[in-house]
Amino acid sequence: MHIIITDAWLAKSRALHLSSLKLLAAGVVASMLLMLGAVAAYHWVFLEGVRQGWPGFGSVARLVTQGEVDSKEVYMRENLDAMARKLGEMQARMLQIESLGERVAGLAGLNPQEFRVHQGAGGALISGRDLTLEELAQAMDQLDMASGSRVDWLTVVESRLFDQKIQRTMVPTEQPVAGGRVGSPFGFRIDPINGRSALHTGLDFPADTGTPILAAAGGVVVVQEVHPAYGNMVEVDHGNNLITRYAHASKVHVRKGDIVKRGQKIAEVGSTGRSTGPHLHFEVWVSGVPQDPQRFLAAGETMATASLQVSKARLR
């Protein structure tokens, strides 16, 4: 294609040669410019019409944006449903914790009903219905309050159970001589030395010299001395005006002021003091009054048997 351009003023002519490729490129560029111009004009007119409130533009804008709004609502609904399901699972777990808390409260010596009363209502369990964002936020606030109160209550229960455990460790229920048999029981008997009737204020455990003497419970050594009648003697204070006494030892491994644990070796069997042969003389005193140690030791055997039965039941 040839185009001749003539300039009348300069009396000149110029010839342009356009190939088919150049014409095609020029057509494409012109089309793109025309399309961009049309889009820009439509966009400006559309926005101006919406801003100015021209008739018909508001409904067109709603139709254009409706799809985007619908997709956002679907996305939000899916997320709300997922959160509601998760919240329902958490509420179900809270009900399980509440049931467990009641049982543990009973073990701690507390009234299980106090646990439910103390917690109050934990809010309605989330069902399969659609929830609004406000309802979901309210349910989560209720769950947060309920979980906080349950933590506080279970902390009290834990403290009570810990106190009970400490108290159990401070009660002399451990055999002071492992596997030892009782020789002379608590009560009145004929004294083996003078032949008169006298109160025997403890239990005698015959054993070989050097046999370990174990602390019947945890406590603090308050006496460690050589007594004319008791020989090498140790007294352990367990609190609550409860004291145990271990007499006639051949050797003592603790001193006054030492803290001892249940089952700890504190001395060795001997025959020191007023004794007719190697044995441990074991006494339990409560508020300054001698008690029958066999009652404490029997209680320890009962607890050990019960614990063994519970362990076997769990294994089954």
Results as ranks from 00 to 15, higher is better:
Val104Arg: 11
Phe115Arg: 02
Ile97Val: 11
Arg116Leu: 06
Ala137His: 04
Arg93Pro: 00
Gln91Met: 07
Ala92Thr: 13
Ser59Thr: 11
Ala40Ile: 05
Tyr75His: 03
Arg77Thr: 12
Ala105Gly: 07
Glu134Ser: 12
Ala121Tyr: 07
Val74Phe: 04
Gly88Phe: 02
Arg51His: 14
Pro112Asn: 03
Asp130Gly: 09
Gly122Thr: 06
Arg116Gly: 03
Leu47Gly: 11
Leu95Tyr: 10
Val117Cys: 02
Met76Pro: 01
Gly53Phe: 03
Gly101Asn: 04
Glu78Val: 04
Met83Phe: 11
Arg93Ala: 12
Glu89Ser: 10
Asp70Phe: 00
Val50Asp: 09
Ala82Cys: 08
Lys86Asp: 13
Val64Ser: 11
Leu110Thr: 04
Leu136Pro: 04
Asp81Asn: 08
Ile97Phe: 03
Leu63Glu: 15
Met35Thr: 03
Leu136Glu: 05
Gln142Cys: 00
Ala139Asp: 05
Tyr75Trp: 06
Arg62His: 10
Glu135Arg: 07
Arg103Thr: 05
His118Tyr: 15
Ala40Asp: 09
Ala40Asn: 12
Arg77Pro: 01
Leu133Asn: 00
Gly120Phe: 05
Gly88Glu: 02
Leu100Met: 14
Phe57Gly: 08
Arg129Asp: 11
Leu34Tyr: 11
Ile126Lys: 03
Val64Asn: 07
Glu48Ser: 15
Arg103Trp: 05
Asp130Pro: 04
Gly122Ile: 09
Glu73Asn: 01
Thr65Tyr: 04
Val50Lys: 07
Gly106Ala: 14
Pro112Tyr: 08
Leu100Cys: 08
Ala41Met: 06
Asp144Ser: 13
Glu102Val: 06
Leu133Cys: 00
Arg85Glu: 13
Val104His: 03
Gly67Met: 01
Gly67Trp: 03
Arg51Gln: 10
Met35Trp: 06
Arg62Trp: 07
Ala38Asp: 11
Ser71Asn: 02
Thr65Arg: 08
Gly88Thr: 00
Met145Tyr: 14
Met94Phe: 03
Phe46Thr: 07
Ile126Cys: 03
Gly58Asp: 15
Ala84Lys: 09
Gly37Arg: 05
Gly53Asp: 03
Glu89Pro: 00
Leu36Gly: 12
His118Arg: 09
Gly123Lys: 04
Asn111Tyr: 02
